[in-house]
Amino acid sequence: MTPDTSAQKPEHSPRTRSTGLGRILVAVYGVFAISATARAGYQIATKFSDAPLAYLLSAVAAVVYIVATVAMARRGVTSWYVTLGAILVELIGILAVGAASVVDSAAFPHDTVWSGFGRGYGYVPLILPFLGLAWLFYNRPRRAQA
């Protein structure tokens, strides 16, 4: 009788996510984590009353980039799922904040990382989650072989 493989847990892909393009993505996410954290920290510490919504959204972006960077750099199925969740939150954030900042610019008197779909960062925040998702799905966990 053959064993039931449908009950087996996925295992990490034999390809490592932190080489080649993966290493570049981790580095880019790391740069965004540092820059978004620095920007949000400075804005909240020095001029929070000017645009509290924008500055809190910058802090949310910073947390998302930190989580994505750390999870992306780690191996394992759990890290893959955490990375996937962070990148999906990032994608929703960039699309929602980007659209809201274009439609109602008065609500965003100061830019966030995701304002104008990442206009202040050369639109890299708009492209990054799509690259991250493509890379993740290429390196998705595989079922264990019998």
Rank of each mutant, 00 (worst) to 15 (best):
V67M: 11
Y123R: 01
V60K: 01
R23E: 08
V89R: 03
G85Y: 04
V103Y: 01
S13T: 08
Y81F: 15
K47R: 14
V113Q: 08
A7N: 12
V28G: 03
Y29I: 08
L95Q: 04
A27D: 07
R140N: 04
Q145E: 14
G76R: 08
Y29N: 15
L21K: 00
T5K: 08
P141S: 07
A40D: 07
G76F: 10
T2S: 12
Y121I: 04
A59C: 05
W114T: 02
A27H: 07
E90P: 00
K9S: 13
G118T: 02
A45G: 11
G93M: 12
Y42Q: 04
S49C: 09
R39A: 09
I24L: 12
V67D: 10
D4R: 09
L21T: 14
A38C: 05
V82R: 05
G30N: 06
P129A: 11
E11V: 15
L133S: 10
F48W: 14
R15S: 07
H110P: 00
Y81L: 07
R15C: 00
T5W: 07
A96C: 04
P3S: 13
A107G: 09
Y65V: 07
A106G: 12
V64S: 11
R23C: 07
A54S: 15
P3V: 13
L88A: 14
I66K: 01
Y65C: 15
G120F: 02
V67S: 11
Y81A: 06
T78Y: 06
V102R: 04
K9D: 12
L56Q: 14
G120P: 00
V67K: 09
D111F: 07
Q43W: 05
W114Q: 06
V97H: 01
